[in-house]
Amino acid sequence: MADPDDTASAPVNEPLDLAYDSHCNLVLGDVEETVYIVEEDDEEEDTVRTVKKQSEMLFVRGDSVVLISPQPPS
């Protein structure tokens, strides 16, 4: 990652993981996708099942993006 003091040449908040444009198209590294699947059981109660998918490098098309929430630095 770039030197955090080097703000003059890098006006974007660091770290950058990884790339984006004005359409919210994204390229992300070290990705975990969580899919929430709501199922109705016999008593008509909703149960939520989650499926996690890992991916080392992922392009996300901007028109499916709803919100982007940067994680606080850990």
Partner: peptide, 29 residues
Amino acid sequence: RGSVVRYVHLPGAAVDTALLEDATRREAA
């Protein structure tokens, strides 16, 4: 058709991450 794409899973080794980050900084600026 590009508009029906949700994700493209990419081979991590083939992606030049430093180049991408630099390009993003330029684009954002």
